[in-house]
Nucleic acid binder design. Structure first.
Length: 308
DNA sequence: GATGCGTGGCA
DNA sequence: TTGCCAAGCAT
């Protein structure tokens, strides 16, 4: 870098002194008026409710999560309640949210919380990160949303908001990068309560206004400051974004097999599973994969069930 | 770092 | 109709 001196720290933290900091007030104000009412955001929801919602929301839209979330929290209001059940019950209750390994990990996380943290969801970021199924995003989200701590909470929504508002491009990179984290750090408010509000507000803006396909820029509180809008909203010009094929994949076969097992209490003959898919080799591979993942338990006499 | 992992709604 | 997309994680 050049030899130009940095401004004094006092100037750096002055509100609105950088493009990123200038976003805080309008986004927070917008959130106060436009936040969705969601059960895990209710005042008394608690950290377990936040944690369950975060697991379910990994790659699954809010509207599809809501019913399963309500059933889950009524049945297992505390981690110890879930930990006492067989993992197969978590897989069954996961219903059709997709990516059922998340159900297994949430169950394992509940057991770890009982064993290591006295049944209470830990408030420490590193302790959260050590739980099964909790990565960088989820640990920061729980610490921020449930405990009001100051963390960069970077999900696909936040990456998109910052890419547009600060970098001036239509879409963020396909995969999360260290640069995303660094950019988010520059946009993180200095004080803890404001940082926690910013985390949820910037995500909500990405979910409701700054959407991937048809952003509602006319409703956006930061459109006058958005680098992408100010550049004339240039179209995405990066590498093609890989579409996920589904028809005919092992994923589809796994989904069919598990759907049968979810709908059945007790053992299912292999013959019943065989009717799920015509291609024997693929069928066997999918079933073996489910067993290897711990989602299905093989029994004597060619029978299968959800894990006990 | 690339890949595998479900399911369904929508432009 | 059919790609694209949805609060990621583990390997």
């Amino acid at each position: 870098m050049s030899g130009s001196p940095l401004p004094p720290a006092s100037a750096q933290v002055t509100a609105g002194s950088t493009p990123a900091q200038a976003l805080h007030e309008p986004v927070l104000h917008w959130y106060d008026a436009n936040a969705r009412v969601l059960p895990w955001r209710e005042p008394g929801a608690g950290a377990w409710a936040v944690m369950v919602s975060e697991f379910m929301l990994q790659q699954t839209p809010v509207n599809r999560v809501l019913p399963a979330y309500q059933v889950w929290l009524e049945r297992w209001p505390k981690p110890v309640d879930l930990a006492a059940e067989p993992p197969g019950e978590a897989v069954r209750a996961w219903d059709r949210l997709g990516y059922p390994r998340r159900a297994l990990r949430l169950h394992a996380a509940a057991q770890a919380i009982v064993e290591r943290h006295g049944g209470e969801v830990p408030d420490d970021h590193n302790a959260l990160l050590a739980l099964p199924g909790v990565g960088t995003y989820t640990a920061a989200a729980i610490a921020s949303f449930a405990f009001g701590q100051r963390h960069v909470v970077v999900d696909t929504n936040v990456r998109r908001v910052l890419a547009r508002a600060l970098t001036g491009v239509a879409q963020p990179t396909i995969s999360p990068t260290a640069a995303d984290q660094r950019l988010a750090v520059t946009a993180l408010p200095a004080d803890e309560p404001t940082a926690a509000r910013w985390a949820v507000a910037s995500m909500e803006l990405g979910a409701l206004v700054c959407t991937a396909r048809t952003p509602r820029c006319g409703d956006c509180p930061i459109r006058s400051r958005c680098a992408w809008v100010l550049a004339g909203s240039p179209p995405y010009d990066g590498p093609p974004r890989r579409g996920q094929t589904y028809e005919g994949t092992d994923r589809q076969v796994r989904g069919r097999l598990l759907a049968v097992l979810r709908a059945t209490t007790g053992a299912v003959p292999k013959k019943t599973l065989d009717a799920c898919w015509h291609d024997k080799a693929q069928r066997e591979r999918a079933l073996d994969g489910l067993v290897a993942d711990g989602l299905v338990e093989p029994l004597p006499r060619a029978r299968y069930r959800l894990p006990s």
